[in-house]
Amino acid sequence: MGFTDVYDYVNGKVEWMVNRQPVQGSGPHYAMVGEVATQDRLQTCVLGSAVSDSASAMGESGDTFCLVLNDHGVVLGRLRRKHRDADSNDVVEDVMETGPTTVRPTEPAKSLLERMEKRNVPAVVVTTNKGVLVGVARRSDLRRLVEESG
């Protein structure tokens, strides 16, 4: 079509909005889970890691789990504190819980917070629709976001 200087903003409107960039339009506008998803203090490990190494780091973040990722950052499973007692020769894929529940960054924060409070869930894993880790949304952060957004 004759264009020579063309770019694809590949992560699109989702990334723009969860990074709280300004938007125009009639709405509805709502706070999204992705706005508070963070990898700060989040424990992760990769396939092939020794359970003893990965599990020992749990608790330092305040979270009670360690996410297992593949080389592409896709969330495959989760270790819990109970796995700290695994055999010292085990690798994470031997004991991990597969397919943890995840939500998308565009999920409305308010409804997710309500579900988390009802079930006393402290944090949820946020991934892209291809399963790549975005971060974890902690209930306290979601509550603050919902309060701020009215």
Partner: peptide, 22 residues
């Protein structure tokens, strides 16, 4: 198509986006 982009300036940088690609 060619008609819908006819008004765009071919000499300027052009960025397209959709919902996400991730």
């Amino acid at each position: 198509n060619r008609d819908s982009v006819a008004a765009l300036d071919r000499s300027r940088p052009t960025v397209v986006y959709c919902w996400d690609d991730i």
